[in-house]
């Protein structure tokens, strides 16, 4: 079950962060060794990413987050780093779905209202983000109910274990 109210710090990134930026393709040989693979998260983009993250933080990006390959290792390694939600102006379709399937919430909202280091409180059920640093209140785009049901169960595998099938 995914927590529905999350509190943490924003780590701000730019537009068009690709899955190669998140976890470069050249590490594909490590994909069956997730602990090793995850050491390379954002390696080409943000040196020392791992040491900047505290458990419970958020990645806050611009438009088209997660574009590129279908590698589900991208949301997986982000989740393994301690990030509990991604906020972006828009997200690539496959990445969005993969993140939800891994139980990692993606909220689409106007991330210009968030600066690096801001403290945020996110209510997933309501889709509302409160920026505790600036006092701004943001609402995120609603996801389809089936997707939200998958997220609430903590991802697609727990969802399927429980329901044995998709339920509309």
């Amino acid at each position: 079950m995914t927590e529905t109210v999350l509190k943490g710090k924003a780590i701000k990134l730019g537009d068009n962060i690709s899955t190669d930026d998140i976890i470069p393709g050249r590490f594909a040989h490590l994909r069956s060794n997730l602990a090793e693979l995850s050491k390379h998260t954002f390696e080409d983009l943000i040196p020392n990413f791992a040491s900047r993250v505290n458990q419970g933080d958020f990645v806050v990006a611009g438009k088209n987050f997660g574009s590129g390959s279908s590698r589900e290792h991208a949301p997986l390694v982000i989740k393994m780093s301690g990030i509990v939600a991604i906020l972006a102006k828009s997200a690539a379709r496959i990445f969005f779905r993969n993140a939800i399937n891994q139980g990692l919430p993606v909220l689409l909202c106007d991330t210009d209202q968030i600066n690096d280091g801001d403290q945020l409180e996110i209510n997933l059920t309501e889709g509302v983000i409160r920026n505790l640093t600036s006092n701004a209140r943001l609402t995120s785009t609603k996801m389809p109910p089936l997707m939200f049901a998958i997220l609430k169960e903590g991802g697609l595998i727990p969802y399927i274990k429980k329901h044995k099938d998709f339920e509309l």
Binding site: R71, E72, I94, N98, N101, Q102, G155, L156, I157, I160
Partner: peptide, 13 residues
């Protein structure tokens, strides 16, 4: 295209 978990469930179901 989809990710590995979506494909795993599509294979199974």
């Amino acid at each position: 295209g989809m990710g590995s978990t979506d494909i795993a469930t599509a294979m199974a179901l």
